[in-house]
Design a protein around this nucleic acid. Structure first.
Lengths: 343, 343
DNA sequence: GAACCGATTTTGAACGATCAAATTCGGTGC
DNA sequence: GCACCGAATTTGATCGTTCAAAATCGGTTC
């Protein structure tokens, strides 16, 4: 295999200088038409491809975004993150960016890892996933002036001492609002909400959508809480439904809980009781449960817009943190007729 | 933020030359003990981190592995690949390697993408996923002498003109064999197999495990085939079970089919009929179905061993294709008591 | 026709690391 | 005391690109 051609080789073949070849690649508009064509022909002829490392060394930019891949939780979710990472890779590629993965088990380890990657010039920016209250990572990134965008809102306890950061997220409340409205229109007025224990940003946000839609319709319904566990959800729902048989439908904070609720309803001889989940996981699809779909592809597009500007092809220098914008994606309700498990 | 320190700065601080600092990093054993300590102290003191781009430019190695992220299929699976990529990232990090993602919709587009990344010096090797018969990618990679390992066997039609390549995979036959043996011991002798249409390497391999276990026990059972669809599996199983009620258990080629079969059995009033799936997806877990778990973490470890040798910290130069080794991981049967959906 | 101008192109230097070759250093052997 | 040896360390060159500044070009202006 012959040595790969360099700008020098292309320049020689086109009868111009190195820099002109470089300009054709990076600032085509300042090169005269005929020259540009000659250079481009030479590039194709020789099959030239720029050497990324040399470019990175000179420009001090890697055109690469770091993303932490969460350890497989073993739970029923995870698909959302996978779709997000996939969409991010695709969109980033269209903008001349790459996506580099890194692994970390704890926030501190993640900070170490990011430090290595940033100082080593391997990444220009980071996309944080799984933000929580009191996230130690965001403060560190801000102090180090590392450009980043979070997938997930800054659910901070609001002391307000720190400027917020840029984020993109799915509008959970809008999702449960749509689900609740759907059930109010199709099933009846007594719609229950099955959620997580209060205190999680995401969970509270989703509960709010149900609350608002119920208030708006002047309807009332019970609100139940349990941990993210299919089994617990099933037990809780079975007991609650036995006591409160007038419930016309259930809006759930997750697909796991929805499946638990559906199994409970089926067990009580009410397989047709409408249950709506959240995340539209394959499991919900398989069982024919309605669910709110997150559209992580749009979140990915939003993240890149925040990081690079709506049309840019490089990470914004000042960084998004100087202008803490955000993108809130409206999820989509997927309506299905539940599989009759006892048919 | 002050400029990041370079080897030169460290050298000055430790009173040695650039090259000695480099040696402390890359070949510590050729540096005298006291010198090494002095240099290491200076590295810590200054917070020095090597600049990856400069190193890559000089060494012509990126220490990076490319992996294509499959588009989200929308089906019930996908978890296996995600766990694999996660494990690969983790293991690669331990060996000083990074994982870079790329997206592609078609094999030809994937080849283009890999060409860019390899010629641009962004990746040293590739991990292929989703290999099929007549894979155009493998031949191209071999011609270009790009080191690679496939997750999945070369199911080639065996004209034998090309040397095989290195691969790592899960032993599907071993999985269904274990599942079949389990049912033979726990449920009865008439165990059915619900598989995909013949002709897919993976599907045929899994069918073989059932065949072997049945033959070994001198048992007999029906063999059904359908596409990867929960609904189709449910209909087929319902019809088949009505006609052949003596079936004591069903081994399935996938969790989707297993769930379909389980729903069919439940519908016929036999919710306790043992059904074993494949992949151990969250959906199977949620429904309490037994399933064969793939252990993609071990596949990831195997891939790296093939790529870098059992202890190496760089991609093997000659490339694994000169020595087409393989790693076959034995999957693990996860036994569960099916949820009684009609309780 | 000389000075001048903006647009285009070329030249010299630098990014930060490692390779290859040269040098220095301690210690031996005679 | 001097030549010699291997181990440890230093020096000069280089990887391929882009930045910054200098040079060239084609055409105007006075």
């Amino acid at each position: 295999m012959a040595k790969a051609p360099t700008v020098q080789d292309v320049a020689r073949a086109a009868g111009v200088s190195r820099q002109t070849v470089s300009n054709v690649l990076n600032a085509p508009d300042i090169v005269r038409e005929p020259t540009r064509e000659r250079v481009q022909a030479a590039i194709v002829e020789l099959g030239y491809r720029p050497h990324a490392a040399a470019r990175r060394l000179r420009t001090r930019r890697s055109s690469t975004i770091g993303v932490r891949l969460d350890p497989y939780a073993g739970g029923i979710s995870g698909v959302v993150l996978d779709r997000f990472v996939h969409a991010l890779t695709e969109r980033a590629g269209e903008r001349g960016m790459r996506v580099l993965l890194y692994a970390a088990r704890t926030p501190d380890e993640e900070i170490d890892r990011i430090g290595d990657l940033v100082d080593g010039g391997e990444i220009d920016a980071v996309v944080l996933t799984g933000t929580s209250r009191e996230d130690t990572r965001t403060a560190w990134l801000q102090d180090r002036a590392v450009p980043f965008v979070a997938f997930g809102r800054p659910w901070r306890s609001g002391d307000g001492t720190r400027p917020a950061h840029a984020w993109a997220d799915v509008d959970g409340a809008a999702g449960t609002r749509a689900a609740t409205r759907h059930l109010l229109g199709a099933a009846g007025t007594r719609i229950a909400f099955l959620g997580w224990p209060e205190g999680s940003g995401t969970g509270d946000d989703r509960a709010r959508g149900w609350l608002e839609a119920m208030a708006e319709a002047g309807a009332e319904g019970p609100r139940w809480h349990t941990e993210e566990s299919l089994g617990l959800a099933r037990e809780l729902t079975a007991a609650a439904l036995a006591e409160d048989p007038d419930v016309d439908g259930i809006v759930c904070v997750s697909d796991s809980l929805a499946i638990g609720a559906h199994l409970a309803a089926t067990g009580l001889g009410r397989p047709e009781l409408p249950v709506v989940g959240f995340d539209n996981t394959p499991a919900a699809e398989a069982l024919g449960l309605s669910s709110v779909e997150q559209l992580p592809e749009q979140v990915a597009a939003g993240v890149l817009d925040l990081l690079m500007g709506p049309t840019g092809s490089a990470v914004l220098h000042g960084g998004p943190q100087d202008d803490p914008a955000y993108v809130l994606v409206e999820p989509r309700l997927v309506v299905r007729a539940a599989a009759d498990l006892a048919r």
